[in-house]
């Protein structure tokens, strides 16, 4: 990691150069409460002071809601070819917990088998991180995700009169050299950065007791009464999955065009909350109950990948709490598991 500082006066020009030289994706205000990460053509569209983004930016770009994987021609002979599409993009203004969500997906999509569709997009994505204001439902410090130490090219922290920049890749360093003027960060810059980080961490109000979850979860797992209470209002709608920066479940479907010759395999996001998630041919459903599906989601988010990768598959962004129509609150539920067991 290299550390540089950039003056306020040159920052705007830096962003403008990026917008004119790259396919640039950044936060744009969608309505009063929500921003969305969309292609930006002019700096006036960009609003880096965002708080809420419903669909996580990285997931949307790297793992789109529907994506062609394979194309084929069905004639006398059948020709099959992979579809791996990607282009260089700048993702600007993504916050620390969403970068950590992306880091999780990185690890996931290259483990066991390498998913080229994801990996190609990821390699070509220039990630420039910036902090954003946490929402009231954000508990990312509990999940060790409020700070990103990897997964970006540049991370820009806004100090009072200048920007403190962490440079994580050679690519990031080159971009900075090409499009801006920076100086090496000195002791006073680090001091101000530390002060900033102290204040930044104080903005997160929600605390979740995740440490004891690992064992307690197994005890509470068979407590049907507890899970009936938790899942009572669940509509099995899957909103929590759509809004999650780390959810990756998908379906693969084969389609054929109207000419009956050109076909393709497409993947589309799926949700482990939907009743048909565990349905197999012949009609047997391995997960017919919503209680069961919800607790399996908690296991996937909070335990499975602690065993596999040594990290949670939850970054504590709080989006699932905000989007849940039934007001199911994962943070409350984690805490209440501890309470339930301690009584």
């Amino acid at each position: 990691m290299l550390y540089k500082v950039m003056g306020r006066d040159v920052f705007k020009d830096f962003v403008k150069s990026l917008i004119s030289n790259y396919e640039f994706i950044g936060p744009k205000r969608k309505d009063k409460a929500v921003h969305d990460f969309v292609p930006i053509k002019d700096i006036s569209e960009l609003d880096i002071n965002y708080k809420r983004t419903t669909i996580p930016p990285a997931k949307k770009i790297l793992f789109p809601p529907d994506e062609k994987l394979v194309a084929y021609e069905v004639n006398e002979k059948i020709k099959v070819r992979p579809v791996v599409e990607s282009s260089e993009k700048v993702l600007f203004g993504i916050n620390a917990w969403d970068i950590n969500g992306m880091n999780f997906l990185d690890r996931f999509f290259v483990t066991d088998f390498v998913d080229e569709n994801y990996l190609e997009r990821r390699k070509k994505l220039i990630v420039i991180g910036m902090d954003s204001e946490p929402t009231e439902t954000n508990f990312s410090p509990s999940m060790d995700s409020e700070y990103a130490k990897d997964g970006f090219d540049l991370y820009i922290t806004e100090l009072k009169d200048r920007y403190f920049i962490r440079i994580n890749t050679a690519r990031g360093d080159e971009i900075l050299k090409k499009y801006s003027v920076t100086e090496n960060a000195l002791v006073k810059d680090f001091k101000d950065y530390n002060n900033y980080m102290d204040n930044y961490r104080k903005k997160f109000k929600l605390d979740v007791n995740i440490k004891d979850f690992y064992d307690n979860f197994e005890l509470i797992y068979d407590d049907d009464e507890f899970w009936e209470k938790v899942a009572k209002n669940c509509y099995s709608c899957g909103s929590c999955n759509l809004a999650c920066p780390t959810c990756f479940c998908f379906n693969v479907k084969d389609d054929i065009e109207l000419n009956l010759k050109d076909g393709n395999k497409t993947r589309e996001w799926d949700s482990c909350m939907l009743p048909e998630y565990g349905l197999v041919a012949g009609g047997h459903n391995f997960r017919p109950d919503k209680e069961n599906r919800l607790k399996q989601r908690y296991r996937c988010k909070l335990k499975t990948f602690l065993d596999k990768f040594g990290r949670y598959a939850c970054v504590g962004c709080g989006r699932c709490i905000e989007v849940c129509l039934a007001k199911i609150n994962i943070a409350d539920n984690i805490n209440s598991i501890k309470k339930e067991v301690s009584v």
Binding site: L69, V70, V80, P82, D106, E116
Partner: peptide
Amino acid sequence: MTLNVKYNNKSNKSSIYVPELA
């Protein structure tokens, strides 16, 4: 970005989703 990719499926195929004709 440090992506330490260890390729397990060492084949010439560029996608794990592409079937072979049979």
